[in-house]
Amino acid sequence: MRVLSEGDILFIIMAVRWTLLLSIVAFIGGGIGGLIVALARTSEFKWLRWLALSYIKVFQGTPLLMQLFLAFFVPGIFGIDVDPWGAAAVGLSLHASAFLGEIWRGSIEVVPRGQSEAAYSLGLTYVPRMFLIIIPQAIRIAIPPTIGFLVQLIKGTSLASIIGFVEITRAAQIINNATFRPFTIFALVALVYFLICWPLSAYSKVMERKLTVASR
C-alpha cells in the first residue's frame, strides 16, 4: 500500500473526461436511435409499432449492467473484437435509444390531433408533417424529461467501469486498490458526479416551470 498523492487525485479527476465523452457519445447515439424508436412507436404500421415496443420493453426490463455485459461479450462469440470503450458506447446508446424513444413518443402524442389533421388537409406528407409541424412542438414538451434522462445516463456510465472502461469510477477503484483510502476517494468521485448532474437537474426544473407557465 502506498500514500494517496496529488498525482492520484489528478488521475481520478482527469478520468472525468472519459465519463463525459462516453455520456456525450451515448447521448448522441441514443438521440438518433431514440428518434427512430419514437417515430416507429407512432407509426401507422402496426408491425413497426410492435417492433419498437418490444425493443423498449427489453431494454426497460433488464438491468443496464446486463446490457453492457452483453454488448461486451456477445460480439466476441461472433468473432468480432470489441474493446471496453466500443462496448460501453454501443451498450449505453442502445439503452438510451429505448428510454429516449419512449419519452419522445409521449411528447409526440401530446401534440393535439388537430395539428396533424390540418397538416394532412393541406396535402403535407409524412416527412414535412412530422419534422416541420409535430416535432417542433413536441421538442418543447420533451426537454425537461430528456435532461432528466441525461442525468441518469451520466450516472449510468459508472457501470462501464465493470467491463474495464477507465472512466472516473474505474480510475477511483484503481487508485483505491493501491492506496486504500475509500472514503476520500469515493466521496471525491461522488462530488464530481454531483457537480455535473446537479446543474442539469436544476436546468430541467427551470424549463419545466417555464413550460407550465407557458401552457397556462
Partner: peptide, 9 residues
C-alpha cells in the same frame, strides 16, 4: 379544410 378549432400551427 377549415376546422372548428382553427388548428393553426
Amino acid at each position: 379544410m377549415v376546422f372548428q378549432s382553427f388548428n393553426l400551427f
